[in-house]
Design a protein around this nucleic acid. Structure first.
Ligand SMILES: [Mn+2]
Ligand SMILES: [Mn+2]
Ligand SMILES: [Zn+2]
Ligand SMILES: [Zn+2]
Lengths: 137, 137
DNA sequence: GAGGATTTGCAAACGATTTGCAACGGCCAA
DNA sequence: TTGGCCGTTGCAAATCGTTTGCAAATCCTC
């Protein structure tokens, strides 16, 4: 099926983790949508009502640890998840202050910037990733 | 006393809000430290044990609404607060993936960037603020 | 200092997330 | 293909940070 899912399945196997129905379905949901989803939303979209909400949480934890998904915290109480950079590409988000709508920005405003220079004194710091959200209207 | 606190007090008054002991002490804590604090930490540092944790939450809400403090969500369960841009200047944070230590970066890697250009299609979006955190070691 | 409006302390409610545990189901070896 | 082991799940209860209702305390204006 979808090549990303195959890649991820292989990755799970390599990490010694089982390929189970909850995990597969959570991934199916995440690959099917274009924007970050709350856990509750992911759970609701699973084809299978037998799957428990806590299994979704556990799957997302595992995926996050294996860098399969990215977790976003946008200020309302709930975390949002989307496929990680390796599967959806590096991008950032516009968050509307008024209605809360979220949109992707594929061009990274940091590209070409020498982050090391910006750090200055804290040169001992090796940047591994960054999180950038733009808020507005 | 500290000029920032006077400014903020004036601002509260202008907004029709009272200058009360909990609010003053929360501000005193925030102006005294250089890094973002969790609500629980702020509460612990108040000189006065009579002040209730929920008053700290309420004070921080008010301050956040009036743009006196900034709220940071760094991925562990708890929000962190620090004085807002107008009082501490625009800056970002380094977050250590290993130990969780947080450090300020005063140079903004976005300065001089035309965010509008980076947005591309979503030109209808007016960026009012941005949040950038750098993760690494 | 008195009056009325705001704010506080307290304790209970809340929503998101995590956890213990017994039943279950992938996965590998036979 | 089957058997069985060990990781995984469903379920319900616990936890955590945060919010809220309400009566009492505090602030601000006069
Ligand atoms: Mn996205
Ligand atoms: Mn800071
Ligand atoms: Zn970027
Ligand atoms: Zn900046």
């Amino acid at each position: 099926m979808i090549p990303e899912i195959d890649r991820i399945r292989t990755l799970l196997t390599a990490a010694g983790c089982a390929w189970t129905r909850p995990r597969a379905q959570v991934l199916a949901v995440l690959t099917a949508v274009a924007h970050p989803l709350r856990v509750e939303e992911i759970h609701r979209r699973l084809g299978d009502p037998r799957i428990n909400l806590s299994s979704v949480y556990r799957a997302l934890h595992l995926f996050h640890r294996l860098n399969v998904v990215r977790r976003l915290l946008l200020g309302d109480g709930a975390a949002r998840y989307e496929l990680a950079e390796a599967y959806r590409g590096h991008h950032h988000h516009l968050v509307c202050d008024a209605c809360g709508r979220i949109e992707d920005v594929s061009r990274c405003p940091l590209e070409g910037r020498d982050l090391g220079a910006a750090l200055g004194a804290a040169a001992a710091f090796a940047v591994r990733s960054h999180s950038l959200e733009l808020f507005g209207l």
